[in-house]
Amino acid sequence: MTDTVERGAPVIESRPLTELDRRPTFFARHKSLLLGLIGGLIVLSSWQTLVWVGVVDDKFASSPLGAIEGIGYLAESGMLWEPTFSTLTSVGLGILISIVIGVPLGLVIGRSSVLHGLAEPLISIMYSVPFVVFLPIIIFWFGIDDTARLVIVVWAAVFPLLINVVAGARNLDANYLQVSRVFCSSRLKTLWSVSLPGTMPYILAGFRQAVARSLVGAIVAELFMGTEGLGYVVQAETSNFQMDHAMAAIGVIAVIAVLLTRGVAWLESRLTFWSGSVD
């Protein structure tokens, strides 16, 4: 072993420089980000150009610059921060409730073959059926206040979370549980120190879907039964033919969606840095 390294070492030192030794250019290092920005700019500027030359009517289609002005209007008339806060509250509370219900329930169902047999078809169906179809029924049950909005967000978020946690608990490496048994861990200790961290990659995958769907749930709820929130702003401003204002609110929703997705990705890298192989 050692003499191959010794024989190999001088060769590495003296070989001529190749492509691999050069530091990649700024463009090469940020390729996907830059291309994404350029793509976005192309679409937005074409849109703006079409409005300027009069091909499309900005009363109907709004325009990028109009939307930016629209944000100013929303901020002045109290339709920016309060609705944003309201939407984020629905999403946050809904996710919190989904986690409190979904994670322990998923772990228990996943670890018990009887419970899994009983619950799995039901969870799959509830996961597959678009949650929006329950909207009329939920309105019938809960009215159109905050509770109903929260119910629809939880309804949207809890099933993807549940289905992933169940899958994770079922795929938990049997070796880990055997280690736990050999060292006489209590059930609670095993759940907390083995099952929970061992399922964490699945929990976070479910969490990622749950976050995305809870935002959809919150916006849909606001569109149909809200008196507040960004979805309501979009709905109300469109009814008033204020397309710039509606487009501005959609822009805010887009920013929230991107930030939430990034936040979850960051959380995933923090909590499951250990999963992922050496190679």
């Binding site: 070796n175 880990y176 055997q178 280690v179």
Partner: peptide, 14 residues
């Protein structure tokens, strides 16, 4: 009073 050294990589990766 007993402990086992496992054949496989049974270390907790987290």
């Amino acid at each position: 009073d007993r402990s086992l050294v496992f054949q496989q990589a049974s270390l907790f990766p987290w």
